[in-house]
């Protein structure tokens, strides 16, 4: 059985800088995984490589046993750390777009989520506030029945009340055979929903453990342990 995400000696260099350095990992289905590390540790690079936006320098990355391509893009739901929607589109048009291209997109669910967040579907994307834009993107991404969710800072730009809603959405929306990878600095907020944790440091994977294991072995929360490992 193929892993939802598998990296073998994955290395990505930008000139002389190694953004990812010999990363080996396997992520199983049915887990929510926190991808944690300080700025510049390679979190976004790893997610982008899995989404097919970067070509690895050496090594291999597989999604459901396949190399990034048309097939894997149909099973990966990726939320980048920026606004990637066409500004001239209306919110309803972005729903049309996702419905057209992703067979696993559940429009009814997306509309229900937009209504819960009080987002007017007739509004143009460019007229929305920064936080609302992020909410729209998250709704689109989470309304898919994907096999692998890659969420880069999904709660970074929203208020605490919306954070709870988003985290609830993530927990309640992913299917049993799916894997959710969340990259964030807001560890305390996401800690309750995490099954596993990945620590990246200077592009290297320094820890892959369950959240319970960290708490049991170190007697600390994931957030406290993170602060200890990455103390400046």
């Amino acid at each position: 059985m193929a892993y939802n995400l598998e990296c073998t000696a994955l290395t990505k260099s930008f000139g002389t800088i190694r953004a990812l350095d010999n990363v080996n990992l396997q992520l199983e289905k049915g887990k929510i995984i926190g991808l944690l590390g300080p700025n510049g540790s390679g979190k976004t690079t790893l997610l982008k490589a899995a989404a097919g936006l970067l070509t690895p320098t050496t090594g291999q990355i597989l999604i459901g046993g396949h190399q990034p391509g048309e097939e894997t893009k149909a099973m990966v739901s990726y939320l980048p750390d920026r606004n990637y929607l066409n500004n001239s589109m209306k919110v309803s048009e972005t729903l049309d777009l996702f419905e057209d291209f992703y067979t696993d997109f559940d429009r009814a669910k997306a509309e229900a989520m937009l209504d819960s967040l009080h987002i007017d579907r007739s509004q143009k994307y460019k007229s929305l506030s920064k936080g609302t834009k992020e909410k729209v993107q998250l709704v689109l991404v989470m309304a898919r029945r994907a096999r692998l969710y890659l969420l880069d800072e999904p709660i970074g730009g929203v208020d605490p009340a919306t954070r709870d809603y988003i985290l609830n959405t993530i927990v309640s929306n992913y299917a049993e055979d799916a894997t959710v990878v969340i990259s964030t600095h807001l560890i305390t907020d996401i800690e309750p929903v995490l099954d596993e944790v990945l620590f990246l440091k200077y592009g290297q994977l320094v820890l892959h453990s369950t959240a319970d294991q960290i708490r049991e072995e170190h007697g600390k929360s994931v957030d406290e342990y993170f602060r200890e490992v990455f103390r400046c």
Binding site: A51, G52, L53, E70, E71, K73, A74, V76, Y78, P80, R82, N83, Y84, L85, N86, F101, Y102
Partner: peptide, 15 residues
């Protein structure tokens, strides 16, 4: 659509 932020959507479409 290819090389700015919009590229993140363009190149993650299953095409």
């Amino acid at each position: 659509s290819f090389f700015t932020d919009e590229g993140y959507l363009t190149f993650t479409l299953p095409v």
